[in-house]
Design a protein around this nucleic acid. Structure first.
Lengths: 213, 213
DNA sequence: CATAAATGTGAGTGTGGACTCATTTTCTTG
DNA sequence: CAAGAAAATGAGTCCACACTCACATTTATG
């Protein structure tokens, strides 16, 4: 008698009504998680925000983890689409790359209030982590701009750039509108300077690093 | 009949035994919060880790918030001491300042596993926020190194530097030992370059910023 | 040693929040 | 329209965790 781990069944919407509901539920989840944080976001609050009953929420997302996973999956796909458009266009000067990166990121996060929360969350290994997705994509772009970078080095620089940008967005959320523009400028400068050094032909970068030996 | 908000009484230790207990409880709280995160850190787990019963924990810290507040207060004082030593020493070259800052911070956080968690936590306005404490101190040091910086500008730069360092420490915690050294170097370079530009006499900084128009 | 104060204990209580389900309402299809 | 499928509902269950309390043990003091 094999005691299988109870295959949780998630109802998949068959009617337009159902799809609308799922969309509204995900949207509500994003808002509530963004406002309250992951742990404090209750299933009831999410259902309420979506104008649905608690039972309705559980029809489509049989538990909190699955709901979160669905949101993460959605973000992954949107990210893939966004970054593919980056890679499709011609390589840019560092300064323009940074400006584009920063600008698009801020808009992206503005419309996805739960993104940073999910980023911090541990996630099952089989699922693509948002963080890894981002790092791989950026590393690829960096490698294209500066083919002399080793893969591991490109990955490393990408990790740093993304971490810095994450910090920027946290500050951005705290600041009053007026100071936000200044903050973005500041970070654009910081990242441009950093990347210009990193993407220079090998000997320049080495020189610079040696100077600090 | 004034219905006062029930003055929660926190037992203050009278014997050495009590002081040891309080110390062990705070230490345990720091560990558990550091490992599990604030929300998932349960009072029972903290008591258990300290080798105390749940009742004992509640004698000295009548609820989770007060416990957290005590930990925050401890960190505040330790921070004040650390930064005062920075301010006491002679002004340093930017590169040395950064190295000292980065080095001391990593050690500090290594011994205070709950620090980053508390940093993220909202906290009652009357209590000194760790974040504000840090910003004020660093801003003061920057202002001393570069008196031409306006106060608000120094504060702004300090906020950016601290946010970048926070990111560094998050990455640091994820990385294997071998890569940590490299990460620290990377951030030292990044921060030094950034601060060297910011702390230069006014016209240089303006020039540079103008270049990006 | 007697006494009281400080400290320690863990079973027990209350509650909020994740999750269930019997039932009803709405939609689709022939 | 009939009848079944999809979707909606919310009262109710269950459990983990914050917090209490009556009582036990240890320590300080005269």
């Amino acid at each position: 008698m094999p005691s299988h781990p109870a295959p949780v069944r998630r109802r998949v919407p068959q009617q337009e009504r159902g799809e609308r509901r799922v969309a509204r539920l995900l949207e509500a989840a994003a808002c509530v998680i963004g406002e309250a944080g992951y742990d404090a976001a209750t299933m009831s609050a999410i259902a309420g925000r979506a104008g649905a009953s608690i039972g309705s929420l559980y029809q489509f997302f049989p538990n909190k983890e699955i709901l979160t996973e669905a949101l993460r999956e959605q973000y992954c796909e949107e990210l893939r689409a966004l970054w593919s458009s980056f890679e499709a266009s011609d390589p840019l000067r560092v300064e323009d790359l940074v400006k584009k990166l920063v600008g698009e990121t801020i808009v992206f996060l503005d419309n996805r209030p739960a993104f940073l929360n999910l980023l911090a969350l541990p996630c099952k290994p089989k699922n693509t982590s948002l963080r890894d997705l981002l790092r791989d994509r950026l590393a690829r772009i960096l490698h294209r701009s500066a083919p002399h970078l080793s893969e591991s080095r490109a990955w490393f620089v990408a990790a740093v750039v993304l971490q810095v940008m994450k910090g920027m967005n946290e500050l951005y959320a705290e600041l009053e509108r007026i100071k936000r523009r200044a903050l973005v400028r500041e970070y654009e400068g910081l990242l441009t300077d950093y990347l210009e050094v990193q993407l220079k032909p090998l000997r320049f970068a080495e020189q610079r690093r040696a100077k600090r030996g």
